[in-house]
Simulated assay, not measured.
Amino acid sequence: MGEQVCRECHRILSSQTCPICGSSNLSSDWSGMVVIIDPERSEIAKKIDVKVADKYALKVR
């Protein structure tokens, strides 16, 4: 089984529930990835509204 993505916050997960938003609404159909290391200083994190450092999908279907 490949990595799943939370449809709510777009975080790439290896579990069945998102620890950030608590959602279990996951998708395996996603594309593009961005790794946020320092969300407070990252312009990309601000644009995609990310507050926690991790891997995120850019597009989730």
Rank of each mutant, 00 (worst) to 15 (best):
M1I: 10
M1H: 15
G2E: 07
G2M: 07
E3C: 11
E3G: 14
E3P: 15
E3F: 11
Q4A: 07
Q4W: 01
Q4S: 07
V5Y: 09
C6N: 08
C6G: 13
C6T: 12
R7S: 09
R7D: 06
R7Q: 05
E8I: 15
C9I: 01
H10A: 04
H10Q: 04
R11L: 15
R11A: 13
R11H: 12
I12H: 11
L13R: 06
L13P: 00
S15T: 06
S15Q: 06
S15H: 13
S15W: 03
T17R: 10
T17H: 15
C18M: 03
C18Y: 01
I20K: 11
I20D: 10
G22L: 01
G22Q: 04
S23I: 01
S23Y: 01
S24Q: 08
S24M: 07
N25E: 07
N25R: 13
L26V: 10
L26Q: 10
S27I: 00
S28V: 11
S28Q: 09
W30E: 03
S31E: 07
G32F: 01
M33N: 06
M33A: 10
M33V: 11
V34D: 07
V34N: 06
V34H: 08
V34T: 05
V34K: 06
V35L: 13
V35S: 15
V35G: 13
V35R: 15
I36F: 09
I36K: 08
I37Q: 07
P39C: 01
E40Q: 03
E40F: 02
R41V: 12
R41D: 13
S42E: 00
S42Q: 00
E43M: 11
I44A: 05
A45E: 00
K46S: 08
K47L: 15
K47G: 13
K47N: 10
K47Y: 09
D49Q: 08
V50W: 07
K51R: 12
A53Y: 01
A53V: 03
A53K: 02
D54S: 00
K55Q: 10
Y56E: 06
A57W: 09
A57K: 10
A57H: 10
L58N: 05
L58W: 08
L58F: 08
K59F: 15
K59V: 13
K59M: 15
K59T: 14
K59I: 13
R61D: 05
